[in-house]
Design a protein around this nucleic acid. Structure first.
Length: 347
DNA sequence: AACGCGGGGAT
DNA sequence: ATCCCAGCGTT
């Protein structure tokens, strides 16, 4: 049996029972693929269940408010996926009569659908022989064929895409694509794969050359920056606070948070109370300020560590943008804020 | 071509 | 600590 045959055979014996494998509806496959971008199945699975239940069809999703979509997406990260997904749902519903594009090329025009996702949907739903190339595929192919070209170099991208496409099963491309990814996730794992039980071990170049640990090769790593976040948790005597929508193009776009003072170094109480963000909400009012966490809460993102302090500011009245404390929990927020709200008793 | 974008799991 | 995860859009 050849590579493709062995992978497919392994898949029929070892595949996990996952909900999106019970359907070929483009809406469901699309939804699962967006959720699973840069996300492990264990993390994404409960979100998929919630979304298909809340939005059974593209129409349901299209008619939802973005804020509702973001609230359900809360905690999953890479929130542009949720914003683009909602945008695409509205586009499909309003401009395409609720019918998803039927081939790879037209799928690519959808916001949030790149080469990987278009290949996945086209192969799984429409039997179009387009090979997916994701992190699993890079790993399996680089090891089996012994390719040390960096997977994130221009040459590597091209090489692996061509190789993957040359291996595709033209009769069952969707099954084969999923098989290769499942094989990478369960058998040809990043760390400590058990090559003794691998059905490809007799022909694997990396195993033969003792390079399993070294492959795939990936260029550089992003340097982590430290930022200091100071959140102003206002609490007025009539149980209101200030919760604002993040605008602009940066992190957590369209999610909500307390007023934020960002800085390059640690701030003390005086720095906070003299800051214009503070003054915007507390003018000539009496206030009482206290630091909620003496030690910074370090929220770790891929390329930033956010050293965070929450300042509790009790005041008799708030000047603007006040919302009731109970309502705060209804807004979509970053996990950093959500964690704080869990630990901070609002009563 | 390089970078920004989250959060969690595994080792 | 470090790497990785069913990647994509922007610059």
């Amino acid at each position: 049996m050849n590579f493709t045959g062995i992978i497919t055979d392994w898949y029929t014996k070892n595949k996990r029972d996952l909900p999106w494998r019970k359907t070929n509806k483009p809406y469901n496959i699309w939804l699962s693929e967006i959720i699973l971008q840069q996300t492990q199945i264990k993390q994404g699975l409960p979100y998929y269940e919630v979304f298909v239940k809340k939005f059974p069809t593209v129409k349901h999703l299209a008619l939802a408010k973005e804020e509702e979509v973001l609230k359900l997406w809360q905690g999953l990260g890479y929130y542009s996926r949720a914003r683009n997904m909602h945008k695409t749902a509205k586009f499909v519903w309003n401009d395409l009569n609720g019918i998803f594009p039927l081939d790879y090329k037209s799928l690519l025009t959808l916001k949030g659908v790149g080469e990987y996702t278009a290949s996945a949907i086209a192969s799984i739903c429409f039997n179009e022989p387009k090979a997916v190339v994701d992190g699993n595929v890079y790993r399996v192919l680089s090891r089996f064929f012994g390719i040390d070209t960096p997977i994130n170099s221009t040459e590597g991208l091209k090489t692996f895409k061509l190789l993957a496409q040359s291996l595709i099963n033209n009769d069952h491309p969707g099954i084969y694509n999923q098989a290769l990814m499942e094989f990478g996730a369960l058998q040809c794992k990043p760390q400590n794969p058990d090559c003794s039980v691998c059905p490809l071990n007799s022909a694997c170049a990396a195993l033969k050359n003792n390079q399993v640990k070294e492959l795939p090769v990936k260029l550089k790593k992003t340097k982590i920056q430290i930022r200091h976040f100071n959140y102003l948790v206002f609490i007025s005597s009539n149980r209101q606070s200030v919760f604002e929508k993040r605008t602009g193009n940066g992190i957590w776009q369209n999610l909500y948070q307390f007023p934020l003072i960002e800085s390059l170094h640690v701030l003390n109480e005086k720095d906070i109370t003299k800051h214009e963000v503070f003054a915007t909400h507390v003018q000539n009012n009496a206030f009482e300020i206290s630091l909620y966490n003496e030690k910074p809460i370090i929220h770790k993102l891929t390329h930033r560590h956010l050293h965070t302090h929450f300042w509790i500011i009790e005041t008799n009245q708030l000047s603007k943008n006040a919302v009731s404390l109970e309502d705060i929990l209804k807004y979509p927020t970053p996990q950093l804020i959500s964690n704080f709200l869990d630990s901070f008793n609002l009563k």
